[in-house]
């Protein structure tokens, strides 16, 4: 579908379908609930609004004229100093509340002495099946517009990844290909806390079938790292060279 629309294939258009379908419905509902009165008021509504404004203005003018004529003071009573003090106390409490929670208490989002390893990349798994050439008989059975010479199942293998730190496995994860027919890219986005210091890191991945044995990773990287507190190490994957990267 993406290729057909000429859009970056990594954007799974299917995920947008609910939005494309529901947005107009949502908008329609809103429109009839009241948006109509703003965007496109009927002549009757417009006339009502105009009349209301006019009558309200007339009423206000009359009222002001009468207040003036009668010398009435419809003003709020003057505040005593004690009352002003009370108001100051209110605003002081309000202000203290605002000022306190606008920057306190401190939140520790991440232990300051620890570092972080991130696993983040996008890669497309291998196709599950090779493309098959269609035989003449098979082609004849298909509708005229469907007679492609190759029969390609575009489904891809999920990615399976192992991450080990200092010889201990800390993570094994599977990333399912995007798209309804599972033919898109697979993505990893994971964070792991790690103590600062030197570590041996090993990351291995299969992109051509689940359950392969441990020694036969399709891709593997083993490296020694030295990481400072709060530092981030990103394990990425360079699709061009087919290699893991460390940044």
């Amino acid at each position: 579908m993406n290729e057909f629309l000429g859009i970056d294939p990594s954007i799974p258009i299917f995920h947008l379908v609910p939005f494309i379908v529901f947005s107009p419905i949502f908008f329609l509902v809103l429109y009839h609930l009241g948006l109509k009165e703003i965007i496109n008021p009927s002549p009757e509504v417009r006339e009502q609004k105009r009349l209301l404004k006019e009558e309200q203005a007339r009423e206000t003018d009359e009222r002001h004229a009468k207040i003036k004529a009668s010398g009435l003071k419809m003003k709020v009573a003057k505040k005593t100093p004690l009352q002003l003090l009370g108001q100051a106390v209110f605003f002081a409490l309000f202000g203290l509340f605002v000022i306190y929670f606008s920057s306190s208490p401190v939140y520790v989002a991440h232990p300051p002495e620890q570092a972080r390893v991130m696993l983040s990349f996008t890669h497309a798994g291998q196709h599950r099946e090779e493309c098959k050439k269609r035989s003449r008989e098979e082609l004849a059975k298909l509708a005229a517009n469907m007679r492609a010479p190759m029969n390609c199942s575009r489904e891809r293998w999920p990615l399976v990844i192992d991450l080990a730190l200092d010889g201990k496995k800390v993570y094994q994860g599977v990333a399912i290909p995007a798209g309804l027919s599972r033919d898109g890219h697979s993505s990893f986005y994971q964070k792991f806390p790690i103590d600062a210091g030197t570590h041996r890191i090993k990351v291995g991945m299969w992109d051509s079938g689940e359950g392969a044995s441990q020694d036969e990773y399709d891709f593997v990287l083993e490296h020694s790292i030295d990481i400072r507190p709060r530092e981030i190490l990103v394990i990425g994957f360079d699709n061009a060279s087919g290699q893991f990267t460390l940044e």
Partner: peptide, 14 residues
């Protein structure tokens, strides 16, 4: 600094 993890934060709790 995107190479560092934000740690102790004076959050705006509102």
């Amino acid at each position: 600094d995107l190479s560092m993890v934000p740690s102790e934060l004076n959050m705006d709790w509102f």
